[in-house]
C-alpha cells in the first residue's frame, strides 16, 4: 500500500464516520450541555456557601448572590475560635471513626452467619434487623436517652456503641445482599485446611467484601458526621454540627460565621467523599441491588 493511498483511505473513513454519527454527536452534545446545567443546580448551594463565607453578615443579608467586595477572612478565624474547632473536629473524627469501624466489623460478622447458616432463625433475625428501617428515630428518642443515661454512656466514647446499635441494621442489610453473591468454593477450600471460623472469616471472607465494606463505611461516615439529634441529646455542643448550630437559631443568626463554619465543617467530609466516591458505585452495584 502506498502512502497516498493510505491517506485517502483515512480521509474517506473519517468522512464516513462524521456523516453517520454527526446527528448522534449533536444529540450527545445537547445532552452534555443539559447535564452541565443540571450539575450547576446541584453544585449551587455549595458554591453559594463558599462565596458567602467571605462576606460580612450585613452583606449576606442584603444580597446573598453578590460577590464579596472584600475578603472577610476574619469569618474563618472567628468561626474557628467560637466553635473551638480543633476540639470539636477531633471529637467528631473520633466518634465517626470509632462508630464506622464498629459498624463494619459487627455487621459483616452478623450478616455472614445470617447468610451462611440457612436456618429459620437466621431469617427471623434478619427480618428483625430490617424492621428498624421503618421506625422513625423520634419514636425511640426518649427511652433511648434514658437507656444511655442509665448505662453511663453520655460521653463522647459512649455515643459510639449507640451508633453501632442504630447503624448496624442497614449495614447488615447491605452485607447480606452482597454475601449471597460470594461463591462458597473459596471458603470451603479454606475450611478443608482446618482454618477456624474466625480465621476463615477475617483472612478469606472479609477481604472479599471490600467493595461493599467501602460503601457501608462511606454511607455511615456521611450519616454520623452530619448527624444532629442524637449527639444533641447525648453530648450537647461537642460535635461539629452542634458547635456551629449556635450561629443559626431563632434569635440569633449570624450568617457570616455560619457560612464560614459550614465550609469548615463540610470540607473534611467533602474531601473524604471525593477521594472515596468511586467505591460507592462499585460497592452498591455489588451489594444493594441484590438486597
Amino acid at each position: 500500500m502506498s502512502r497516498t493511498n493510505l491517506q485517502v483511505d483515512e480521509v474517506l473513513q473519517k468522512r464516513i464516520q462524521i456523516k453517520t454519527s454527526s446527528p448522534k454527536r449533536l444529540a450527545m452534545l445537547f445532552v452534555e450541555i443539559v447535564m452541565c446545567a443540571l450539575a450547576f443546580i446541584f453544585l449551587f448551594p455549595a458554591l453559594l456557601t463558599l462565596v458567602n463565607s467571605f462576606k460580612s453578615h450585613p452583606e449576606i443579608v442584603m444580597n446573598p448572590f453578590a460577590l464579596p467586595t472584600k475578603l472577610q477572612l476574619s469569618n474563618y478565624a472567628n468561626a474557628w475560635r467560637e466553635t473551638n474547632f480543633p476540639v470539636v473536629l477531633a471529637n467528631t473524627f473520633l466518634i465517626t471513626l470509632g462508630s464506622t469501624i464498629g459498624i463494619v466489623l459487627v455487621s459483616s460478622m452478623a450478616a455472614y452467619v445470617l447468610v451462611r447458616f440457612k436456618w429459620k432463625i437466621s431469617w427471623v433475625i434478619f427480618l428483625l434487623f430490617t424492621f428498624s428501617m421503618v421506625v422513625p428515630f423520634q419514636a425511640i428518642m426518649v427511652p433511648l436517652f434514658a437507656n444511655a443515661k442509665s448505662l453511663n454512656l453520655l460521653t463522647i466514647l459512649g455515643i459510639i456503641p449507640i451508633y453501632i446499635g442504630l447503624g448496624c441494621p442497614l449495614a447488615i442489610f447491605m452485607y447480606h445482599g452482597f454475601i449471597k453473591g460470594v461463591p462458597l468454593e473459596i471458603e470451603e477450600s479454606a475450611a478443608i485446611d482446618g482454618a477456624s471460623m474466625f480465621r476463615r472469616f477475617f483472612q478469606v471472607v472479609f477481604p472479599l467484601l471490600t467493595p461493599i465494606t467501602a460503601t457501608v463505611a462511606i454511607l455511615n461516615v456521611l450519616w454520623i458526621w452530619n448527624d444532629f439529634l442524637l449527639p444533641l441529646l447525648i453530648i450537647p455542643g461537642q460535635t461539629l454540627q452542634l458547635a456551629q448550630y449556635k450561629f443559626i437559631g431563632q434569635f440569633r443568626q449570624d450568617y457570616a460565621l455560619a457560612m464560614a463554619s459550614l465550609v469548615l465543617s463540610a470540607s473534611p467530609i467533602v474531601l473524604f467523599y471525593l477521594i472515596m466516591q468511586k467505591y460507592i458505585i462499585k460497592g452498591i452495584s455489588a451489594g444493594a441491588v441484590k438486597g
Binding site: F117, P143, L144, N147, P161, G165, P169
Partner: peptide, 28 residues
Amino acid sequence: SKIFFFIIFLLPALLLYSLFFIKPFIEG
C-alpha cells in the same frame, strides 16, 4: 460448634441493636 460460631458472630450486633433499638421501641 456451628451454633457456637453463629452466636459469637451475631452477638455483638444483636446485643447493641437490642439495647439501643429494640428495648427503647418496646418501651415506646
